[in-house]
Design a protein around this nucleic acid. Structure first.
Lengths: 122, 122
DNA sequence: CCGTATCCGATCCGATACTG
DNA sequence: CAGTATCGGATCGGATACGG
């Protein structure tokens, strides 16, 4: 597991998964293909720029397929590839872990920050 | 799954998991508790600063426990908490996915970049 | 409708130097 | 040995404006 090449590949994927919007986009596309504007509307707070960049990166990694219909106005659909769908399982497992432990984590943070402040006031 | 609070908690955890060293540190601690200097030596390329920050964040989230033995020179041990150990399963699943698909991803990237370049040269 | 370009602040992370 | 402080480059991501 800790050989150079594999380790870098793992870090790479974790880094993509850790960025602000990727997982949210993938999870939106997990139900059905969506147009650019549908994604934009369904993801609260994402900017046009970041949606474009996120989709481009996912497409580059082979996780998302982009289909242009050259009508006027243009129409662009995005959907998960087979590879993209295989990512769903492990990512959702991690998301479930996060959801299941968020209260515990919040408490740990509160404890830590409180102790931190108390040590300042010595 | 997409209610505000849960969604932010998930993003938060993914962001931690996506940072450069956290998962590596957790995976090192999964075998046995380690001293600061042991971690430093066993993780190729990490700086003292980043090891400290990474451990501090993991401790704050309740994933790692820090134990100081006030000898001279001081000795500080780190180990996974019960919560930290529960994180291992989903993270290793994701790492396994990354390891298992790294070739496929590399090919997707090569294809994408090639196509990209070709379209520039029109 | 979809995408690109530019600017700009925020954050990440490495290098280095210094303390108990 | 373990940790902190400071600096500077690289990258991230939001706002805005513009183009096909």
């Amino acid at each position: 597991m800790h050989e150079q090449e594999t380790c870098l590949a793992v870090r790479d994927v974790l880094h993509r998964v850790g960025d602000k919007w990727s997982v949210l986009v993938v999870s939106m596309l997990s139900e059905r293909p969506l147009r650019f504007s549908e994604l934009r509307r369904s993801i609260e707070g994402i900017s046009q720029r970041m949606l474009t960049l996120t989709l481009r990166n996912l497409e580059r990694d082979g996780l998302v397929m982009r289909t242009v219909t050259p009508t006027v106005p243009p129409r662009v659909d995005y959907e998960l590839t087979a590879l993209g769908r295989t990512l769903l399982d492990p990512v959702l497992a991690l998301a479930a872990w996060a959801a299941g432990h968020r209260v515990e984590i919040a408490h740990a943070r509160a404890r830590f920050d409180r102790k931190d402040r108390d040590e300042q006031t010595d």
